[in-house]
Design a protein around this nucleic acid. Structure first.
Lengths: 229, 229
DNA sequence: CGGGGTACATGATAAAAATCATTTTTTACT
DNA sequence: AGTAAAAAATGATTTTTATCATGTACCCCG
């Protein structure tokens, strides 16, 4: 496992920034961002923010992964979104004027920069490109969640798992999927035992392979067929 | 049943506007809106827009109700949102630059005004209050959908139905809930037969009463208890 | 105002998934 | 490296929900 640790990343050289909401920033805009942000190292399973608390700013992931989740009645987590490097997390609550309705926690060691609420809102006010990017992002995410809801309502757990594994593959890129069975179950929306049984089925069907907890995708096409789209 | 028909509503006098995204508009802003909008009468079950098509503008509901839904693999509808008078529908796709991911259809006779895409986007560009209202709306809706997903994943159909009935009550206000069993099932996310059986249970438990297809809420508290929040 | 079509309702059965109990494997720590 | 604790895996069983088949009621239209 690569040794990660706190390092001060400059926005200018931040590869993650390129694909982020701030990707359009140039010269002095990057400088301003650089001055306003603070960069922190997060251990695994460390919370960025918690449901019910008041938003203090936004988090830009330089390296690492973050789960965004809500809690149901009995405290069971439902993972709503998984965010990887380049994503800006926590900006939705900036505009709603309400406390967070979801929580965010790191899934692995991460380097994450923080931009305070007023600085961020000033940026949004003064930068039409950023603003449009945000509106676009919000709208797309809204559409994604409509699909999410529909899948949840109409697909079987087996179909949802196949679909989820493909999504996870996109998030983990070259790496193998490395997520606890419980988190995976909370993403798919099922019981941990059911998830484990289905993983076993997929293994027997040679759609995936497992190396301890890590999951390797062997047959994308096959999974896509199982997912039913 | 009140006889509805096409009538030209002026934005100035439109009661629905007060609570809408355009609620903050004053004098000349209202005049501009008035000149740009066109007002139409829609019959029951008439589509406003369809999944996959390119957005042409936004729809402001003066009177009536609209369902927003996606279709799953086998064509089954999943109702994502129910919109009533005062709501502006279809503006999310304005910003995403993508075709509609959902469809919208009237649930009853409705009077709905239309504002073309470029007019609407100009309004948004030139009016910071409107813009902030939209960002707030998008963010809130995103939070709502996180809750929706969590409920879908973790609550039983019985719990979801109780919750849905309370939501429907809020939408239908003084009127009784008047929705086909199929639409109701597609909102709750279950089979029509299951929904009907559960309505019967609720009737026996005196939580609701039915008058033909219309549903009357007898015991809000009780339903809230069943819903489990 | 009657009849046909659609929506609603009920029943029987099968399938899917949750739950609870227990064992095995992996991980983290000293 | 050894061990305790946590996570993963398996098994048995129950509960929930979907599906298929069929009967009934409502309501729109001629």
């Amino acid at each position: 496992m690569p040794e990660k640790s706190h390092k001060h990343v400059t926005c200018e050289n931040c590869l993650s920034r390129q694909n982020s909401l701030f990707g359009s920033f140039c010269g002095e805009e990057v400088d301003l961002l650089e001055r306003q942000k603070s960069c922190s190292y997060f251990k695994k399973n460390q919370p960025l923010f918690i449901e019910g608390s008041a938003p203090r700013g936004v988090y830009c992931i330089n390296e690492g992964k973050v789960k965004i989740f809500a809690r149901g009645e009995e405290g069971k987590e439902q993972i709503i979104h998984l965010a990887a490097a380049g994503e800006v997390v926590g900006f939705r609550a900036m505009f709603s004027g309400e406390p967070y309705k979801v929580s965010a926690t790191t899934l692995e060691e991460s380097n994450i920069c923080f931009i305070g609420k007023s600085d961020f809102l000033d940026l949004v006010d003064s930068n039409p490109t950023l603003r449009n990017g945000i509106m676009k992002e919000l709208s797309k995410e809204l559409a994604d969640r409509a699909t999410f809801i529909t899948n949840m309502a109409q697909k079987s757990v087996r179909e949802r798992l196949a679909f989820s594994l493909l999504m996870l593959q996109d998030i983990y890129k070259e790496e193998m999927i490395n997520l606890s069975r419980e988190d995976m179950a909370n993403f798919v929306g099922t019981a941990t035992e059911t998830l484990i049984r289905l993983l076993k089925d997929f293994k027997e069907e040679e759609l995936i392979a497992t190396h301890a907890r890590r999951v390797e995708i062997l047959d994308r096409e096959g999974l896509l067929r199982v997912a039913g789209n």
